[in-house]
């Protein structure tokens, strides 16, 4: 987690060429367990899933080859289209997901009063499974829940956090953000440990104010971490919000919190259409492929590969 900041190290792919035959053999041997696991449990199922998406099998395995009919269905499915729009909205909030933990980590690093305590408890929600987080926030955010009670006490009208189409997705995003920001703080903290104190100190002596130091010195030096957190967060929000959606909104009201992963679950189980679910899965994977490409580039650069 620490290491991606070491982009300044001289790349070691210098002087070209490969190692000795023995070195090469050892390399493949050492990679074998990792490659075998990834291929068997992830890559092969993915290819298998692609073939499944070209059929209309039911849960009993009966079905026919239907070509790209499931993809055509997706193109005409208003629910799927809405889920894509929701995904775009979700991705648009990405800067918050990165900036908030970064700001908190910098403040702790700069010695905010109580920083040690914050660092310890911020990680806490990340430890909890989405089952408990969902149970808590369904009590907090419901129309007669504790948040509206508190707002009522200071004279603010009740807001329908989860029940109205305009608020539900935002509320869901806020809860997911709350439950994961601690991980980001931890990653940024480790990154900040690599920013030499004397650079910050020098800037201070030069008369740079708090915010100037923050934006002109600290943030630029965190760039690799920012990229890393951005990519990891993107994967997280696209693939791990099912638990919260299920408990808090069930994808509604209407389709306002239906994300592709929730739709996959719905089609797969309740609606009993594994072929169509596989097609949506493939579309989701290809969408993420664009991000994957970006990610591989960023991560490769940071490891000097």
């Amino acid at each position: 987690m620490t290491v991606k900041t070491h982009k300044t190290k001289p790349p070691r792919k210098r002087r070209g060429g490969f190692g000795s035959k023995q070195e090469q053999r050892f390399a493949y041997l050492m990679l074998l367990p990792a490659l075998a696991l990834v291929l068997i449990f992830r890559v092969i199922p993915l290819i298998w899933g692609f073939f499944l998406s070209l059929t209309n099998v039911d849960t009993l395995g009966n079905g026919d080859w239907v070509g790209f009919a499931n993809y055509a269905r997706a193109a005409n499915d208003p629910t799927f289209q809405d889920s894509l729009i929701n995904t775009v909205i979700l991705l648009a909030t990405l800067p918050i997901w990165v900036m908030l933990p970064m700001l908190l980590a910098i403040l702790i690093h700069q010695g905010v009063p109580g920083g040690k305590f914050y660092r310890a408890v911020y990680f806490f929600p990340a430890v909890l499974s989405s089952v408990i987080i969902g149970a808590i926030f369904s009590v907090v955010l419901r129309y007669d829940g504790s948040l509206n009670n508190m707002l009522g006490a200071v004279g603010i009208d009740a807001i329908d956090w989860l029940g109205s189409s305009s608020n539900a997705l935002g509320s869901l995003i806020a809860v997911q953000l709350w439950s994961t920001f601690g991980m980001g703080v931890l990653i940024f903290m480790s990154g900040l440990a690599t920013v030499p104190d004397d650079i910050i100190e020098a800037a201070r002596i030069d008369g740079a104010g708090f915010w100037q130091r923050l934006f002109l010195v600290i943030v630029p030096s965190l760039r690799p971490i920012i990229e890393f957190v951005a990519v990891v967060t993107t994967i997280g929000v696209l693939t791990s919000m099912f638990g919260l959606i299920y408990v808090l909104t069930g994808g509604g009201p209407g389709t306002s919190t239906t994300l592709p992963e929730f739709l996959i679950w719905l089609e797969q189980g309740k609606l009993n259409r594994p072929g169509y679910a596989a097609a949506i899965s493939m579309i989701l994977f290809v969408m993420m492929g664009g991000i994957a490409w970006m990610q591989v580039r960023i991560m490769s650069r940071n490891t000097n590969l």
Partner: peptide, 13 residues
């Protein structure tokens, strides 16, 4: 109907 119906679950809220 209860006004916040869309924010609570039928089971068991």
């Amino acid at each position: 109907f209860y006004e916040g119906a869309n924010s609570i679950a039928k089971f068991m809220d």
